[in-house]
Deep mutational scan, measured.
Amino acid sequence: MDETGKELVLALYDYQEKSPREVTMKKGDILTLLNSTNKDWWKVEVNDRQGFVPAAYVKKL
Rank of each mutant, 00 (worst) to 15 (best):
M1V: 14
D2S: 15
D2Y: 08
D2I: 14
E3F: 10
E3C: 14
E3Q: 15
E3R: 05
E3V: 15
E3W: 08
T4N: 14
T4I: 13
G5N: 12
G5R: 13
G5A: 12
G5D: 12
K6I: 13
K6C: 12
K6L: 11
K6F: 13
K6P: 13
E7G: 09
E7D: 10
E7H: 11
E7R: 11
E7P: 09
L8T: 08
L8C: 10
L8W: 13
V9D: 00
V9S: 03
V9L: 12
V9N: 01
L10E: 12
L10F: 09
L10M: 13
L10W: 07
L10T: 07
L10Q: 11
A11H: 00
A11R: 01
A11I: 02
A11D: 00
L12S: 02
L12Y: 03
L12N: 03
L12V: 07
L12C: 07
L12G: 02
L12D: 02
L12A: 03
L12P: 00
Y13A: 10
Y13M: 11
D14C: 05
D14S: 08
Y15P: 01
Y15H: 03
Y15Q: 01
Y15F: 07
Y15R: 02
Y15T: 00
Q16W: 14
Q16S: 12
Q16G: 07
Q16Y: 15
E17M: 12
E17D: 05
K18P: 04
K18L: 09
K18R: 14
K18N: 10
S19Q: 07
S19D: 11
S19V: 05
S19P: 04
S19I: 04
P20F: 09
P20V: 09
P20E: 12
P20R: 08
R21P: 05
R21Y: 15
E22Y: 06
E22D: 05
E22Q: 09
V23E: 01
V23D: 00
V23I: 15
V23N: 04
V23C: 08
V23F: 13
T24F: 04
M25P: 00
K26H: 10
K26V: 10
K27W: 03
K27L: 05
K27G: 05
K27V: 07
K27P: 03
G28P: 00
G28W: 05
G28K: 02
G28V: 00
G28M: 03
D29K: 03
D29V: 04
D29M: 13
D29R: 02
I30M: 06
I30S: 03
I30Q: 04
I30A: 03
L31S: 02
L31T: 01
T32I: 15
T32G: 08
T32R: 12
L34H: 05
L34E: 03
N35F: 06
N35K: 06
N35I: 08
S36H: 09
S36C: 10
S36F: 07
T37M: 09
T37L: 09
T37P: 04
T37W: 09
T37F: 10
N38F: 08
N38V: 05
N38Y: 08
N38W: 07
N38A: 08
K39N: 11
K39W: 07
D40L: 12
D40T: 13
W41E: 04
W41H: 03
W41I: 03
W41C: 06
W41Y: 07
W42Y: 07
W42V: 06
K43H: 11
K43T: 08
K43S: 07
K43D: 03
V44C: 05
E45A: 11
E45I: 09
V46P: 00
V46L: 15
N47S: 10
N47F: 11
N47I: 10
D48G: 15
D48N: 14
R49H: 07
R49P: 00
Q50E: 10
Q50C: 09
G51F: 08
G51T: 02
G51V: 04
G51M: 05
F52Y: 15
P54V: 02
P54A: 02
A55Q: 05
A56D: 09
A56Y: 09
A56C: 12
A56E: 09
Y57C: 10
Y57F: 13
Y57W: 06
Y57R: 05
V58R: 00
V58T: 04
V58E: 01
V58K: 00
K59N: 06
K59D: 07
K59Y: 10
K59A: 12
L61E: 04
L61V: 12
L61C: 11
